[in-house]
């Protein structure tokens, strides 16, 4: 009793204010993190779910098994394809639109900004459903457009060569608005004098872009690139709604694979190993972060 009392006396009001949040984070975040690690070394499955006595420690077997699972490698490759092609494309569109919005003297900017940002706010799953119709091989607007400009229509979601490009196209549309706003804020911090000085020195638009704009937004661009690649590695809802991982498993992502493995086949131990491999990739990315930058993911 006295021990408890002395602990209580030591508590500052600050402790009381942070305690509820810290407890929640400990129970529903920290415990499961260690739980995930522990789980990945066991054969946690539907029998263990019913009774933990059925649980066995199997060391690195899940990881070794994963490395011999072709679908895991397929999912890994698909996810890298999506992240390494999709993220740069999306950032290029973001930067282009941010630069357009930063040109002085353009009217209706708030309207343009809102229209360009709207896809980002829209519910991902519902937007993916709309795009299934947009990408439809017969009725879809995208193919109507291709026909108009003289290109043969494409079976976007039915052809394994075009399913991932289709999802990338959708994701660029869905996500570019977020980075656009961040890069726009960075562009607005570049002093006008720098552009003026470059102009006086006879620099053309391309030179001003290379020597003033890019260095000015470089720190933000680096941050945005890392966050976007990390975010793109977490691809899930798009294949779930648009392709169910198909055709020919061309859109199975790491998370989609983990979800099926864990919650369809109830191989929770095995799926945890996939989750940890994804975590390792994201950790690796975070080391590329410039020192002293804090990012709230």
């Amino acid at each position: 009793m006295t021990a408890i009392r002395s602990v209580l006396r030591d508590l500052a009001p600050g402790h009381v204010f942070v305690l509820p949040a810290m407890l929640v984070l400990a129970v529903f975040f920290l415990v499961p993190v260690f739980g995930a690690l522990a789980m990945s070394f066991t054969d946690f499955d539907i029998y263990a779910m019913a009774d933990l006595k059925n649980l066995r420690f199997i060391g690195l077997d899940n990881y070794i098994n994963l490395l011999h699972t072709p679908l895991f490698w397929k999912a890994f490759g698909n996810t890298c394809y999506f992240a390494l092609v999709g993220a740069p494309l999306s950032i290029m569109v973001s930067l282009g639109m941010a630069m357009a919005l930063n040109v002085p003297g353009i009217g209706l900017k708030p309207l343009f900004r809102t229209a360009l940002f709207a896809p980002y706010v829209a519910t991902l799953v519902a937007a993916a459903v709309i795009w299934r119709y947009m990408l439809d091989s017969q009725y879809g607007w995208l193919n109507q457009f291709l026909i108009v400009i003289g290109i043969r229509p494409i079976d976007w979601l039915g052809n394994p060569h075009f399913s991932m490009p289709a999802i990338i196209l959708f994701s660029v549309w869905k996500n570019f608005g977020y980075n656009m706003l961040i890069l726009l804020a960075a562009l607005q911090r570049i002093p006008d004098d720098l552009y003026e000085a470059a102009r006086v020195d006879g620099a053309g638009p391309w030179e001003r872009f290379i020597h003033v704009t890019l260095p000015g937004v470089a720190p933000s661009l680096w941050m945005v690139a890392l966050l976007t690649v990390a975010g793109y590695f977490q691809l899930f809802a798009e294949p779930y709604v648009m392709t169910q991982g198909g055709p020919a498993q061309s859109t199975v992502s790491l998370l989609y694979f983990m979800y099926q493995d864990g919650f369809k086949w109830w191989n929770l131990g095995h799926a945890s190993a996939t989750a940890f491999i994804l975590f390792a990739v994201l950790m690796g990315l975070s080391f590329l972060r410039p020192k002293g930058e804090e990012v709230f993911a």
Binding site: V31, F44, A230, Q234, F296
Partner: peptide
Amino acid sequence: VVIPGQLIMLPLFF
């Protein structure tokens, strides 16, 4: 911050 939310989903489910 580096820990992705998806990592904890399986144990949190249990």
